[in-house]
């Protein structure tokens, strides 16, 4: 007789699977091993946070998961299929600040990914864009240009754009790095709300340990270059996460553990 655990394992393909993934930059003779032999699975609907010392290869790893770079070794499966090139139907990406197109309005920015394929008529695309803006709490700001939006609002548009094609996986590379602390906290809560509503699988890179613990189901710690996964820490805090947890004992213990790992890794 199968155990319950076995049954679930059989039923679910991991949303993301990395098998021995490596990334080497540079030409012959002058190479940098940015990422080395990284393997892990991310279950559907999980919120995974990636932390590690600066330059350890977090962005490189994300770029590969987005299909923007080819791994030098190993392979990456998203939804059970290899990802060889960007596939916005499977993976959405949210970049650091200022990645919005300044020549497009908020609505047009969100509509941009949809307009590349032209499978939907324009009115429907715009309707979808407005729906996404609504989801991120920006109803009424459709016609604004990025320079007319605050930093937090810009990142909301970025998230809406990443979600435009409703991909099951959302990759986020330090999306809130440029925001002030208050905005950052609010955006964290907002992101968790959106995540709960849309049930996406999220891989989120950050330098903030508080942010990492606050958001994550699981925190993966990378070593300094060449980047490897040196620890995977389950965050057993209940959801919804609240501000009060930040001062709690569990929270502190988790953060300390991550910090110790990074310090020894760096």
């Amino acid at each position: 007789m199968r155990t319950l655990a076995n049954v679930t394992e059989l039923r679910t393909t991991p949303a993301i699977r990395l098998e021995g993934v490596g990334q080497i930059y540079g030409a012959a003779g002058d190479t940098v091993v940015a990422v080395e032999d990284v393997s892990f699975d991310v279950e559907p609907g999980k919120f995974v946070v990636l932390v590690g010392p600066s330059g350890c290869g977090k962005s490189s790893l994300l770029m590969m998961m987005a299909g923007l770079r080819h791994p030098s070794g190993g392979r990456i499966l998203v939804e059970g299929k290899p990802i060889d090139e960007p596939d916005p139907d499977r993976v959405g990406v949210v970049f650091q600040e200022a990645s919005l197109f300044p020549w497009l309005t908020a609505e047009q920015n969100v509509e941009f990914p949809l307009s590349l394929k032209r499978t939907l008529p324009k009115t429907e695309r715009l309707a979808r864009a407005r729906e996404r803006l609504d989801l991120v709490g920006l109803a009424g700001f459709e016609a604004r240009y990025p320079h007319e939006l605050s930093g937090g609002m810009k990142q909301r548009v970025s998230i809406a754009r990443g979600l435009a094609q409703d991909p099951p996986v959302l990759l986020m590379d330090e999306p809130f790095a440029a925001l002030d602390e208050q905005t950052r906290m609010t955006m964290g809560d907002e992101l968790l709300r959106i995540w709960a509503e849309t049930k996406k699988t999220v891989v989120f890179v950050t330098h903030s340990l508080t942010e990492a613990v606050y958001l994550a189901d699981e925190v993966m710690v990378m070593s300094a270059r060449p980047g490897r996964i040196i620890d995977r820490i389950k965050v057993d805090l209940p959801r919804p996460r609240t501000y009060e947890m930040l001062g709690g004992e569990i929270f502190g213990r988790l953060r300390d553990r991550i910090w110790r790992q990074i310090r020894t890794a760096a």
């Binding site: 987005a66 090139e85 960007p86 596939d87 970049f95 197109f101 990914p113 435009a164 094609q165």
Partner: peptide
């Protein structure tokens, strides 16, 4: 032209 903008477009599968 900002390389970031090009990367964004590529991530959405732009030709």
């Amino acid at each position: 032209v900002k390389p970031d903008h090009v990367t964004v477009a590529r991530s959405f599968g732009a030709t």
